[in-house]
């Protein structure tokens, strides 16, 4: 780790201005990912602008019923918030499924969105990696990839996005608030992450120097009946092999509204819109759930060792939607 300068910002414009003073500057939030990456040499900023003390630590209900979550709200506070638990229980469950209690106390909402992949080749600076060193190659394609992407990857990168929180946010149409030198702006989460293509090092649509200031969840009655389930190689404290956020509104056996998003299958939290379209207005049966999952997963292109994710996600969709249907009937 090379030496770096450290500055604390006290308000958002100052933070953005401080970052602009050095092309190799980075914002420091909870540090749970950035400090680790600095130790392994993946990141080597010249200046850290500490934004943890910014007044972005509130969760508030807007006049239109939307939930506005500040960027420096910790994962723990987000998960414990009564409004989140009441209106978006899958978000609480997703956050609680991630990392550990101590990491969740440190990690922030803004930082969570910017998490880097846990692909082992990305984290090992002795290895080639197109995401870390553009053009150097992707050893995961022919190497170790049993927990890599099955959807929308490219021959340049097959890494997954590691966030659990992001999966629930994707299901609930989150909008990311940012602040640039030009002032505040908004980016829907669906446009926040960029396709892998031939630029896996460009992960998001944040303008240079922009600071994430918060996330807004539009009011969504369906979200009150939502769950998150994560399958992983330990019962806790492990990244997902596959996960699903689901919300379901069923009336008289018919799907009125549904939200579905998958984790650990692509370079971004995967909103399953094809499956949602297949389900909406149709019967809430296991057959329909399976058909919807198949519709979404038809585009899956598994590699040699991650094909299990296709039946895994399919089975999770069926199990979760069946469970939500049964809960609705009670």
């Amino acid at each position: 780790m090379r030496e770096f300068g450290y500055k604390r910002a006290t308000d958002v414009p100052e933070a953005v201005a401080l970052l602009a003073t050095d092309p190799e500057a980075r914002f420091l939030g909870g540090g749970t990912n950035l400090v680790d990456l600095m130790k392994t040499g993946v990141e080597s900023p010249a200046l850290l602008v500490d934004v943890r003390g910014l007044p972005l630590d509130r969760i508030e209900v807007a006049d239109d019923g939307a939930l506005k979550i500040g960027a420096t709200v910790t994962n723990s506070d987000l998960a414990a918030d009564p409004e989140v638990r009441r209106r978006y229980p899958a978000l609480t469950e997703a956050v609680l499924a991630g990392a550990s209690g101590q990491l969740r106390n440190m990690a922030t909402v803004g930082g969570n969105l910017l998490q880097r992949t846990r692909c082992g080749y990305f984290g090992d600076t002795a290895q080639p990696c197109n995401k870390r060193v553009p053009g150097s190659g992707c050893p995961a394609l022919a190497g170790e990839h049993h927990n890599h992407a099955i959807l929308d990857w490219s021959e340049h990168c097959v890494a997954t996005h590691p966030s659990d929180m992001g999966v629930a946010l994707a299901a609930f149409d989150a909008v990311v608030s940012i602040h640039t030198a030009d002032g505040p702006a908004e980016l829907p989460l669906s446009e926040f992450y960029l396709p892998v293509g031939d630029t896996p090092h460009r992960e998001n649509a944040l303008p240079p120097g922009a600071l994430i200031t918060g996330v807004t969840l539009p009011a969504a009655p369906v979200a009150a009946r939502s769950r998150y389930r994560k399958v992983r190689e330990r019962a806790s404290f492990a990244f997902a092999n596959g996960s699903i956020a689901a919300a379901l509104d069923v009336e008289d056996g018919t799907v009125r509204d549904v939200r579905l998003a998958f984790g650990a299958v692509a370079s971004r939290p995967w909103r399953a819109r094809k499956a949602e379209r297949a389900l909406t207005g149709g019967p809430a049966t296991a057959e329909a759930f399976a058909a919807a999952a198949d519709a979404e997963l038809a585009a899956a292109e598994p590699l040699a060792h991650n094909g299990y994710k296709v039946p895994l996600i399919r089975n999770l969709v069926v199990a979760m939607l069946t469970e939500l249907t049964q809960e609705a009937a009670r």
Binding site: Y6, R8, L28, G31, T32, V35, G101, Q102, N105, M106
Partner: peptide
Amino acid sequence: TVLLDGRRANSCLQLAVA
């Protein structure tokens, strides 16, 4: 693990300066 303002945290990822 230590307690930071009463909450548990991984001190290996917490910069002293911060």
